[in-house]
Design a protein around this nucleic acid. Structure first.
Lengths: 158, 158
DNA sequence: CTTGGTGCAAACATTTTGCAGCACA
DNA sequence: TGTGCTGCAAAATGTTTGCACCAAG
């Protein structure tokens, strides 16, 4: 299944600018597939947007529970798949134990700085990387559709 | 646990140049920890070297079985951990379902071209990436210890 | 001999799925 | 009034671990 993809908006956006369009995008993508925009799905997306960074399924479940809107594990996982297939979030793999996800708005956050001392993870963007990536692919007659870069770092010393 | 790390050898090496040193490295690393270099461990490393690319635990088990040297799943997983902690192999995460591994000799193969049409995965090296990576980290007072890049590609058309 | 290794099977953790009842269009 | 959605619990998957016996140094 490949739901209708998000219309990426260039440039930085305030959080409020993001929330509304993402709901709309999700709604539209669901409708296009004959699926329903349920309260559970809306709450899950809301909670994800509030995270504003990386999150795991478990965190999402906890956050929903704290809000008093208990949603079942199954529904969370099913919704994560929907959100991924319409391009609103993307899966980030850097930990064998569980999947992490992040908002995919503007295609930012394809690069992670993972601090191997503290475990802290920061997302960032390296614009030059796109050019480099495309050059390498073009040289092989391939087309880059996306990328994920993880950089493992530690404090400057040592 | 952090076993004695491999002494990376610069430049390309023929396969035979690799096999012997890797056994020696493994042996030395094990001895340094009071661990034993068993036939099972030797066979596992041999089989990994023969793969000469990405592999999964399951493939390793199959290959060993075909050779007539059946090794248990538990031993394979335990040995993979040992090999990783002494830097001979590294875990590559790009698939939620299972871990992939690769030889870490010369630190090559940190970049993967993943064909989203065929599922084919190719490892390659982008020398410029190191400079880019280090620049970004230095700007934040961090030191890059390694990286993993996955580029998702499809055939040139479309 | 002593310590560590192996295989097996059970345990684990995360994610997926079957199913019965519920709810929106 | 039907199709899809939810929650629950069971299943599935890859990986880890406890244990009894075996083997290398």
């Amino acid at each position: 299944m490949a739901l209708e993809p998000i219309k990426t908006k260039a440039g930085p956006s305030a959080q409020l600018d993001i929330i509304e369009p993402l709901c709309a995008v999700f709604r539209r993508a669901l409708k296009g597939e004959g699926l329903k925009y349920t309260p559970e799905r809306a709450m899950i997306l809301d909670t994800i947007i509030a995270f504003d960074g990386l999150f795991e399924a478990e965190q999402l479940l906890d956050a929903l529970k704290k809000k008093g809107h208990s949603v079942s594990k199954a529904t969370v996982y099913r919704t994560l798949k929907l959100l991924e297939s319409c391009g609103i979030i993307q899966q980030v793999l850097f930990d064998r134990d569980q999947s992490h996800y992040q908002l995919a708005v503007g295609n930012t956050g394809n690069t992670l700085l993972i601090n191997i001392d503290s475990g802290e993870v920061e997302t960032l963007e390296i614009p030059e990387l796109i050019a480099l990536r495309d050059k390498v692919c073009a040289a092989r007659g391939l087309k880059a559709k996306g990328h994920k870069l993880q950089i493992f770092v530690s404090a400057g010393d040592e």
